[in-house]
Design a protein around this nucleic acid. Structure first.
Length: 475
RNA sequence: CGGGGAAUGGCGCAGUCUGGUAGCGCGCACGGUUUGGGACCGUGAGGUCCCGGGUUCAAAUCCCGGUUCCCCGACCA
């Protein structure tokens, strides 16, 4: 009786159904923009808080920069403006008058950051600068999809400046690790860390790294990126410092970003035919209580017990919700399942008599996930269960990811592998090779880190290579 | 910018070919019966049929012009 399209049947429709049934978003009046409704936004906020804590733990601080950037700023870094100009939203009229210089609505903040850093940084004592921004940016996308690709999207962008390349590269890798850990430890979402091909680099970077996650339809999603900007932006914006040796040097800068598409990814990784499945750490509601009664007499007794359980769980710091809506239990069960609430607590007359509750865990489908447990000690039981659910969601996703990657050594093998999974293929890092892949409707996601060294032939050019690239259809 | 659809109550749609009282399902409101896996009965509210023009006694329907949105490509977190 599920209202949502089965995941296996039409993944795209399933995704939209799930978002809609979970009441996560609405479409905005301007095409390509969306409204994040409270349930969706709360989930994003919880993910944001978890990630922000990791930033703080690695010594970063938050700041806020303007959304309006002079067009001339973008022009200062050649490849940057070339990369972004097709997707810019530009303000040409302000206060009813034509502006002398067009203003760009930020597509990303490297340029306005560069301008500020050039004024803020004078001495080696000012370094490193480790700043993060939580904001929204605008890119005029041709085709959009809620959370995965919207014209305005929320994200964080980190911008750091360092005295040496060793230091800035360490920062790039550290933040990629932070993203990976956020995925695994906060969101139960595994991903593959690696270096992007030259062709896929951020406009203006000398090196780009990413984490790639596998969605439920085996397509890849770039879930986070961390860029080594070298000295490109330092040159363009004159970010210099006087070093210990009394010589003026250019800074080495980095930037890294993770957007609310990560949340779209989370949904596509964990969801099932019943809807969302959310990891307890970030779920807006961790447990919901559904009272069951059929007359006023039962209702009084049941609600007394339900209210008491609610108060206990709340006091224990669990994000718990009482669903006392006037609806049948079956409706409520489905409703909360679609919203991905990790645990459901049913309290009816039988439970009142037994001092028990029915406890259903969302990570296990159907009756198998339901058990009857005592009311006493429920908070502790839930906390243990939340850890189990997190591990079980991660395990399921990790096994799915690992079992759908195939090492291939020929073009035919690659073509076959990407029909239903990811391929690890020896590939030369050359834009022409990436273009060939594109003809096959697939892309070079990244060159995963930590590969065993080897000597192979590129599946496209036949040239010798020592690295394998992850090739997949992607979002 | 190419190729294909669509616009009718809050949502999803039928009605358009062949012009003739504005319909259905869901949702919503009220009343009642229900309630351990998406209940049921009754009553009710709610619509400039995307916009502009034309044809006609009469247009959601036919003709002309325009707008917007969606899907598939190119671009991308």
């Amino acid at each position: 009786m599920a209202k949502i399209t089965p995941r296996s049947q039409d993944f795209n429709q399933w995704y939209l159904d799930v978002l809609k049934e979970a009441d996560m978003f609405d479409y905005g009046p301007v095409g390509g923009t969306i409204i994040a409704k409270p349930y969706g936004w709360t989930l994003y906020e919880n993910m944001k808080d978890a990630l922000d804590k990791r930033f703080k733990d690695t010594g970063h601080v938050n700041a806020q920069f303007p959304m309006f950037i002079p067009m001339s700023f973008l022009r200062r870094e050649q490849s940057h403006v070339e990369g972004f100009s097709p997707e810019l939203a530009v303000v040409t009229i302000g206060g009813g008058e034509e502006l002398a210089e067009p203003i760009v609505v930020r597509p990303t903040s490297e340029t306005i950051i560069g301008d500020a850093y050039s004024r803020w940084i004078n001495s080696y004592r000012d370094l490193p600068v480790l700043i993060n921004l939580w904001n929204s940016v605008v890119r005029w996308e041709k085709r959009t999809k809620p959370f995965l690709r919207t014209m305005e999207f929320y994200w964080q962008e980190g911008h750091t400046a360092h005295a040496t390349h060793e230091e800035s590269w360490a920062e790039v890798m550290q933040m990629l690790d932070v993203y990976h850990a956020h995925g695994v430890e906060d969101c139960a979402m595994p991903s593959v860390k690696g270096r992007k091909s030259k062709n896929e680099r951020f406009a203006g970077a000398i090196n780009t790294t990413s984490i790639e996650a596998m969605m439920g339809d085996k397509r890849a999603l770039q879930a986070g990126t961390s860029h080594d900007l070298g000295q490109n932006f330092a040159k363009a914006f004159n970010i210099k410092f006087l070093d210990k040796d009394n010589t003026e040097k250019l800074c080495w800068t980095t930037s890294w970003g993770l957007s609310w598409r990560f949340m779209g990814g989370l949904i596509m990784v964990h969801g099932d035919d019943q809807g969302l499945r959310l990891p307890p750490k970030i779920a807006p509601i961790q447990a919901v209580i559904v009272p069951i009664h059929k007359n006023d007499d039962e209702k009084t007794k049941v609600m007394e017990a339900a209210d008491r359980v609610f108060a206990e769980l709340k006091a224990a710091g669990i994000r718990v919700k009482m669903d006392d809506r006037d609806a049948t239990p079956g409706f409520k069960f489905n409703d909360w399942e679609m919203r991905g609430v990790p645990a459901r607590i049913e309290i009816g007359p039988k439970d009142v008599a037994n001092s028990s509750v029915a406890l259903a865990r969302r990570d296990v489908a159907g009756k198998a996930g339901k058990s009857f447990v005592p009311q006493a000690g429920l908070a502790d039981r839930l906390k243990t269960l939340f850890v189990e659910i997190h591990e079980s969601l991660h395990k399921q996703a990790a096994e799915f990811l690992n079992s759908n990657i195939r090492e291939v050594n020929t073009l035919d093998e690659l073509k076959e592998a990407v029909q239903d999974g990811w391929a690890l293929a020896p590939l030369v890092d050359d834009p022409a090779v990436d273009a060939k892949l594109k003809e096959m409707q697939v892309t070079n996601r990244n060159y995963p880190f930590g590969q065993a060294a080897g000597e192979w032939k590129c599946v496209i050019t036949g040239q010798p290579v020592t690295e394998r690239a992850l090739v997949a259809r992607a979002y």
